[in-house]
Amino acid sequence: MKIRKTVALAAGTLMLAGGTVVGAQTSAFAEEDVPGDELVEVGSNGTCTYSNWGGRFLCKSNVKLKLPNGTWQAFVIGTDNRPYTKWKGNMSWKNMGGKCYKPGQRSIDVEWTNGWNFAITCIGGDGNRWYNERFTSGRWSGWDRSRT
């Protein structure tokens, strides 16, 4: 993963703010456009973006997961401390609810995977690790302090 410092966010990228997505992603993704191939640090305030997927999030607060069908799904902590996800073919970042803190300390992370069933974790405002499990059906469990 490469990190490049820059002063401004490139035009056409998404910005995560206040639980909403601002802007539009218009570029098509080639197979080699894997999130995390290149992160761009924006300014000196510790925010990063995926150069090929957009999105503005706290640096050291991102994880990517290759799904069973070969597509990628990324999980980040937005600048509003809310967890977001995006996957290839989805044109906008989705708010996962809750809040995550302590970037760089495995918050946000993938706890375990079993095909389409996996768990995302983050450190909540209470300092505890929280889990959100994705079931094979595509439904999410919602954030909980215990692993399912």
Score class of each variant (00 low, 15 high):
residue 55 G to P: 03
residue 86 K to T: 02
residue 89 G to I: 03
residue 2 K to T: 10
residue 64 K to G: 10
residue 108 I to C: 08
residue 1 M to R: 09
residue 145 R to H: 07
residue 95 N to S: 08
residue 109 D to S: 15
residue 133 E to W: 03
residue 120 I to C: 02
residue 54 G to H: 01
residue 60 K to H: 13
residue 105 Q to N: 15
residue 114 N to Y: 11
residue 114 N to C: 08
residue 18 G to A: 10
residue 15 M to E: 15
residue 95 N to G: 01
residue 7 V to D: 14
residue 55 G to I: 02
residue 80 D to R: 05
residue 99 K to P: 02
residue 81 N to D: 09
residue 70 G to Y: 04
residue 58 L to K: 15
residue 31 E to R: 13
residue 129 R to C: 00
residue 95 N to D: 15
residue 60 K to N: 13
residue 102 K to N: 13
residue 61 S to A: 15
residue 68 P to E: 08
residue 1 M to I: 11
residue 99 K to V: 10
residue 48 C to D: 12
residue 79 T to Q: 14
residue 65 L to W: 11
residue 1 M to C: 06
residue 4 R to Q: 09
residue 59 C to A: 11
residue 43 G to D: 08
residue 141 S to M: 03
residue 41 E to K: 13
residue 24 A to R: 13
residue 34 V to A: 06
residue 96 M to A: 04
residue 108 I to W: 00
residue 59 C to Q: 10
residue 52 N to D: 12
residue 24 A to P: 05
residue 77 I to T: 05
residue 20 T to N: 12
residue 3 I to W: 11
residue 19 G to M: 06
residue 15 M to L: 14
residue 84 Y to S: 03
residue 146 S to T: 10
residue 38 E to G: 03
residue 58 L to C: 10
residue 77 I to M: 06
residue 69 N to S: 07
residue 109 D to K: 15
residue 56 R to E: 15
residue 51 S to D: 12
residue 103 P to G: 03
residue 71 T to L: 11
residue 89 G to L: 05
residue 64 K to L: 11
residue 87 W to R: 14
residue 76 V to P: 00
residue 107 S to M: 01
residue 96 M to G: 07
residue 25 Q to I: 09
residue 118 F to T: 02
residue 28 A to R: 13
residue 43 G to K: 07
residue 82 R to C: 06
residue 10 A to F: 13
residue 5 K to D: 12
residue 120 I to V: 15
residue 137 S to R: 01
residue 24 A to K: 15
residue 26 T to D: 08
residue 116 W to Q: 09
residue 118 F to E: 04
residue 95 N to I: 00
residue 69 N to C: 06
residue 69 N to D: 15
residue 16 L to N: 03
residue 136 T to W: 01
residue 103 P to E: 09
residue 129 R to M: 01
residue 27 S to F: 07
residue 84 Y to G: 01
residue 5 K to V: 07
residue 50 Y to N: 11
residue 127 G to D: 04
residue 100 C to T: 06
residue 44 S to Y: 07
residue 139 R to V: 06
residue 93 W to N: 00
residue 139 R to N: 08
residue 120 I to P: 00
residue 66 K to F: 03
residue 119 A to H: 04
residue 35 P to H: 04
residue 22 V to Q: 15
residue 45 N to Y: 12
residue 103 P to V: 01
residue 97 G to I: 06
residue 119 A to V: 10
residue 55 G to F: 01
residue 100 C to W: 05
residue 42 V to I: 15
residue 61 S to F: 09
residue 109 D to Q: 14
residue 27 S to M: 09
residue 120 I to D: 00
residue 71 T to M: 10
residue 108 I to Y: 02
residue 3 I to L: 13
residue 112 W to H: 12
residue 23 G to I: 01
residue 110 V to H: 02
residue 116 W to E: 10
residue 124 G to N: 03
residue 47 T to S: 13
residue 19 G to K: 06
residue 120 I to E: 00
residue 46 G to S: 09
residue 33 D to T: 02
residue 33 D to W: 06
residue 4 R to H: 06
residue 90 N to S: 11
residue 122 C to A: 12
residue 44 S to G: 08
residue 89 G to S: 01
residue 135 F to I: 03
residue 17 A to D: 14
residue 103 P to D: 08
